[in-house]
Design a binder for these strands. Structure first.
Lengths: 126, 126
DNA sequence: TGAAATTTCTACATTATGTAGAAGTCTAAG
DNA sequence: CTTAGACTTCTACATAATGTAGAAATTTCA
């Protein structure tokens, strides 16, 4: 239930950047600006608004997006912050492992020194 | 590139449990035993060996499985340990976040006290 | 040398996602 | 109140991933 498609991802990224709920049209405009990921300079296609709406509906069904049906052009916002979402995903991945500690060991071995420091601080010394 | 299907997952779980490389037939037998996840007591269908072979080929293409072509009934083994694989997945998820530290904070807030202790040990006190 | 075992090819069903036109609904101007 | 234009919902199709396995090709061993 975790993975998002490219477009879904792009939409979520925009919603995460936006504190305010925004309309599908606004999203479409923002999407048409940002480079489509791959290095190709292709300025690419402006998506149809219905496309954005479809994606938003799917994200809503997945519980990642919430919409204000009150205001007329509906406005959408992310339900959780990106950090929360990412952390949840990580936990989901970790959760299915019977050997959590071993996983954490490998994991820790890879984070940068600065992040390690952050982690130490977060864990406290108790 | 991360997510595995249910059957692929089941096969990987078996390979991870097995230190030795094993044959597709052996895998099929092991698969037919274990309960198919959902609570339904349905003893279910023994998979065709070709099905297992297909899945193994796909996993090989994904770089998760390696096969010994030398021995006649080919034998398969997982390329990495489950812990390594899981840790990689976690890093993959984390990597795409521009706000890694925030994610780590959320993440740390969720692990058990025992695990937190393990993490402290792993991080050292430097 | 063949029959049995094994592997590779090919194929089909289902689901997720990208994409958007068609059709229905609502709002605001007149 | 009426209706054109904006907005939303339905419906639909293409592509890719995955589950599933028969058919065909290949290998082995009796």
């Amino acid at each position: 239930m975790a993975t998002l498609g490219d477009l879904e991802r792009a939409v979520m990224d925009l919603l995460w950047e936006h504190p305010e709920a925004i309309t599908a049209n606004a999203l479409r405009d923002l999407l048409s600006q940002r480079p489509s990921g791959d290095g190709d300079g292709q300025e690419s296609r402006p998506l149809a608004v219905t496309t954005v709406l479809t994606v938003l509906s799917r994200l809503e069904k997945k519980g990642l997006v919430e919409r204000e049906r009150s205001s007329r052009p509906h406005r959408y916002r992310a339900v959780t912050s990106r950090a929360d979402h990412t952390a949840e995903l990580m936990l989901e991945v970790l959760g299915s492992a019977p050997d959590r500690e071993a996983v954490l060991a490998r994991f820790i071995g890879t984070v940068s020194e600065g992040e390690a420091a952050t982690l130490r601080k977060l864990l406290g010394r108790d």
